[in-house]
Design a protein around this nucleic acid. Structure first.
Lengths: 345, 345
DNA sequence: AGTTAGCACTCCGGCAAGGAGAGTGCTAAC
DNA sequence: GTTAGCACTCTCCTTGCCGGAGTGCTAACT
C-alpha cells in the first residue's frame, strides 16, 4: 500500500511535511506547486493531496484549510523520505567540548551532553541511565556516615557512582571498617551486581566465614546493602526549550501534561525503553509511543553503550512536528559520543 | 506613614488582599462591603480604596475595574495583617512520612520533602544546599575509578555525599590505595574542607612526608582533589505546579522566563541566598527579590540547619499572588523538619 | 465631619455581522 | 492525465453594539 505510491506523490508528501515542519501551519496546494518549481499546477497537487488524505497521510483541520501531515504521514516521511542533514563542524565541536567538561563522575558527563543537545535541537532532552544491575563493578567502599550508619559506595566501569545507606549497623572501629571494606572490594571487582550478590551468598555458606568475624560481618553487610536492585536514573535538561515550540506555547493543557510527565520518572523510562535495547536510533511518533499520557509527542532516542552492553539512552522529546532531518543526526552523534567517552573509562 | 493607617483602613486592605489571593481577579468595593457584613457601604469603601491607592498599596488595571494589591500592598499584608493558618495534622504527617522515605544520603531526604511541599502548596519548590565548604567531614575514601582515574568520596555530617574525580594519577596497587585512603580519612574526620586543606598543606611541609612514600602520595592527591571548592546544589521539584496558577497559564512569556530561570542554577541560588543566612523565614515579594530576571514572582524560603550552622534553605517560588497564610507555615514546618532530621545524623 | 445614595461615566467582554483571504472540490476543456 | 476556472466553505479580523461591573463625584443625610 504505502509502497504503491509513485514518485510524484511521495515528493508532494515530502514537501508538505517539510513545509509544515518549518512553518507549523497547514500547507496549501499553491505553496507546494511553487515549491516544486511550478512543474505541476495547484489543481494537480490538490488531486494528489486528496489521494494522500485518503491513504491516511494527511488531514485537514477544516474544510478550507491546507493539509497537515498525520502521524502516519510523519512516519512515512521519516522511514522513506527523510534526507539527513550533515552536522555542522561547530556543533560537533560544541558537543565534544561539553563532553570534555563533564569529566566528573558519569552523571556530569551525560548531563552536560544532554543539556547541549537540548539547546542545539531546541527541544527537551532526556537521558536515562539503565539500572546499574548489568554494569560491571570497578570498586566498592564502605564509609562511616553517622552513628550506626554506614555508606556503601560503588563505582562502576564508566565512572558511575552509586551510594546506599545501611542503617542500624552497630558501630565498628575504623580499622575493622577498613578491613571489611577492603575485603568486599576484592570480591566485587569485575563482577556485576547480581554476580556479586551470588558470590557473597556463596561465601557466606562457606564454613570459614563463620569463624572469621570480620569476614562474616563484611558478607552480611554486603548482602543487606545489595538486597534490592538499584533503580536507574533519569536526567532531563532544557525543559524551557519546549516552550519555543508554538504548539506548546498555545495549548497550555498539553504543556501541563508534558511537564507533569517530566516529573514522573517512570513515564520517561517507558518512553526511552525501546531505544535502550536497540542499537539503531528510534523515532516514535505520536500515538506510537506506548505512553498513554502523551499521545501527541515524539521521541527521538538512541542507546549508548559501555563496551558491548547498552547502559542507557539519550534522546529528545518534543511535538510531533520536529525537524527530524536535523534532530536525528544530532541524537545519533550525541549517543555515539557518549559511547566513545565511556569506552576509555 | 504606613502605621498612620487606622484600623478600618487596614481591615479593608486585608480583605482586598485575601479576596484577590482567592480569586486572582480585581476586587470591587461592593464585594468588600458585603464581606465586611455591610457595616460600611460600597461608597465608603471606595473612598478608603482611593486612599489606599494613593498610599501605593493598591492599583487599578484600568479605570473601571476593581483594585488589585501592589507589591507594597502584599508586603504590608504579610508584615502586619497576616494571620497564619494552622497546619492540618494530616499535612504534617505527610511531610514526616516523606522525610522518612528519603532515608538515603542527604539529597534524597531534601528531595522528598521538597516534592511534597510543592504539592501541598501548589507551587514550585526549591531547595538549595550550601556549598559543603562549611560542613564538617565524617569520612573520606579513595576508590579506583578507572585507568589512571581515582575517585575521592567525601561524606559530611548530615549524610551528604560528594565525589570528585582525580584524573591522570598513575596507577597504584590496591594495597597502596587503601593505605592512602585510610591515612587521608584519619586526617579528615571532624574537619571542614578548608581546615582539611590547611592540614594537608601543613603535613606536606613536614619533613617526614618526604620520606614516607605512601604518605607523600596521599597528601599530594588530597591537595589536588580538594584544590577548588565544591559548589552547592539546587533541587527543584513540582515545576508543573506553577501551571496551576492562572497568572502563568495565561502569560506564556512569564512562564518561559521562570522556567528558564529554573535551568540556571545561579539564579536560584541568588534567590534563596538571603534565607540561608537568616534564621527566620524570608518572604520576598516581586521586585524586592534581587533577581532582575524575575520581577513578578515571590519567594518564601527558610534556612535549615545542621546543628548550629545553616547548611541550606528550602522554599517555594510562585506568583506574587500566593496564599501566604498557608504557605508560610508550610515552609517553616518543612525547614524545621529538615533541621530535626539532620540533627541525629 | 464622616457616611451614604444616586448618577453619570468609563472600560471590558461578549456577540453578531460583514468582508477579505486562503484553500478546496468539481467540472469542463486541453 | 493535466489544468484553468469557478463556486463554495471556512477562518480570521474588524467593526459596532450592548450589558455589566465598577468607579468618582456631588449632594443630601446623620
Amino acid at each position: 500500500m504505502a509502497s504503491g505510491m509513485d514518485d510524484r506523490t511521495t515528493r508532494v508528501l515530502r514537501h508538505i511535511v517539510e513545509d509544515y515542519i518549518a512553518t507549523a501551519e497547514p500547507v496549501g496546494s499553491r505553496t507546494i506547486s511553487k515549491k516544486m518549481g511550478l512543474s505541476l499546477s495547484p489543481a494537480t497537487i490538490r488531486n494528489i493531496m486528496a489521494d494522500l488524505e485518503e491513504a491516511g497521510f494527511l488531514a485537514q483541520p477544516h474544510t478550507s484549510a491546507g493539509r497537515i501531515p498525520t502521524g502516519a504521514g510523519f512516519r512515512y516521511y521519516i522511514d522513506h523520505l527523510l534526507s539527513r542533514q550533515v552536522l555542522a563542524r561547530s556543533e560537533m565541536d560544541q558537543l565534544h567540548r561539553a563532553a570534555g567538561e563533564g569529566n566528573g563522575p558519569g552523571d556530569e558527563l551525560v548531563r552536560q551532553v544532554s543539556r547541549l543537545l537540548s539547546n542545539l535541537a531546541h527541544q527537551a532532552s532526556v537521558v536515562v541511565v539503565s539500572s546499574p544491575e548489568q554494569q560491571v563493578l570497578r570498586s566498592v567502599s564502605l564509609m562511616r556516615a553517622g552513628v550506626e550508619r554506614i555508606l556503601l559506595v560503588t563505582v562502576m566501569r564508566g565512572g558511575w557512582v552509586q551510594h546506599r545507606l545501611i542503617e542500624g549497623e552497630p558501630d565498628l572501629t575504623g580499622d575493622e571498617l577498613e578491613k571489611i571494606s577492603a575485603y568486599l572490594n576484592e570480591l566485587a571487582e569485575g563482577q556485576t551486581l547480581p554476580q556479586l550478590r551470588a558470590r557473597i551468598l556463596a561465601e557466606l555458606r562457606k564454613e570459614k566465614a563463620r569463624y572469621d568475624r570480620v569476614m562474616g560481618r563484611a558478607l552480611t553487610m554486603g548482602a543487606r546493602a545489595l538486597a534490592d536492585a538499584a533503580p536507574g536514573e533519569v536526567f532531563i535538561e532544557g525543559r524551557a526549550n519546549i516552550l519555543e515550540q508554538p504548539e506548546f506555547a498555545e495549548d497550555v493543557h498539553r504543556l501541563k501534561r508534558i511537564l507533569r510527565a517530566f516529573e514522573e520518572k517512570s513515564v520517561i523510562f517507558r518512553l526511552l525503553d525501546r531505544a535502550m535495547e536497540s542499537r539503531a536510533i528510534q523515532v516514535s511518533v505520536g500515538l506510537e509511543n506506548t505512553v498513554e499520557e502523551l499521545p501527541d509527542i515524539s521521541v527521538v532516542a538512541s542507546g549508548y553503550r559501555q563496551g558491548a552492553s547498552s547502559v542507557g539512552s539519550i534522546g529528545l522529546i518534543g511535538p510531533v512536528r520536529m525537524d527530524y532531518s536535523r534532530v536525528i543526526p544530532l541524537v545519533e552523534y550525541a549517543a555515539s559520543l557518549l559511547t566513545t567517552m565511556f569506552e576509555d573509562r
